[in-house]
Amino acid sequence: MLEARLSQSMVLKKVSTNSSLQHLIVEFSDRTNHLQVVDAIKDLVQDCNFDCNDSGIALQAMDNSHVALVSMLLKAESFEPYRCDRNIALGVNLVSLTKVLRALQNEDLVTLKAEDTPDSLNITLESSTADRISEYDLKLMDIDQEHLGIPDTEYAATVTMPSAEFKRICTDLQAMSESVTIEATKDGIKFSCAGDIGNGAVTLRNYQNVEKEHLNVDIELTEPVALTFSLKYLVNFCKAQPLSDRVKICLSNEVPLLVEYLVTGTSYLRFYLAPKIGDED
């Protein structure tokens, strides 16, 4: 049996027993959080499996071209309550899920329930202020998905920066070109692009703000690295920006770029993107 509840601000709350016979119960109380997770993914992939086990809910999916990968893990601690007796794969069409989640009001509690071999996912929306309960059953589907093993990598450069800043840089540069070159040196990190109308570049240096820590820009560098990426994909990743103030960008030669949004605690949403190699036009 699985029960899971995601509470406000993802603060871990006391796990309580639920008498329901259903096997998966996940509750989110933060509308924006869950919605943004789904929103950020739905523009990248169409259908995907939510793999539920006793440690939490995980998701791994690739886009149609298989050049980008999204990996999400919502730890069991993020939910209150969370219960999952057996491993369950919930095949969900993300567009359909978005349609249901659109009914979410702010501050609503979200409970997900599913049986061991589910045909549908039960979604209950509870208003925390008024006594209103909405219930939805979302049809599930069988999705054949291969899982890739992602090894822990020592990246040559790791940049932690405000997520809003990263989003602005990406959207600004997208206006000029299709792709961006990210160059990490000990001086700072440079986003540069060259397009038909000219070229542009944004450089960020190490920045420390003691009062407002979320505006810090931290660059950890073992060796300089410069890689080129598709801006369209990066802008897509940035849709997860509301999830977190901070974004971590990891670069290394010959491996995909990692863009990570820390949801809460150890829960995360990670995007991988293959670099552009060779001649670009």
């Binding site: 739905k42 523009d43 169409q46 050049v67 299709e178 598709s230």
Partner: peptide, 18 residues
């Protein structure tokens, strides 16, 4: 979704598969 359709138009030449 619209985003998925948009991504189909992206030139992925030179990008390796995951």
């Amino acid at each position: 979704s619209r985003g998925v359709r948009e991504l189909k138009k992206v030139n992925t030449a030179g990008m390796k598969k995951m």
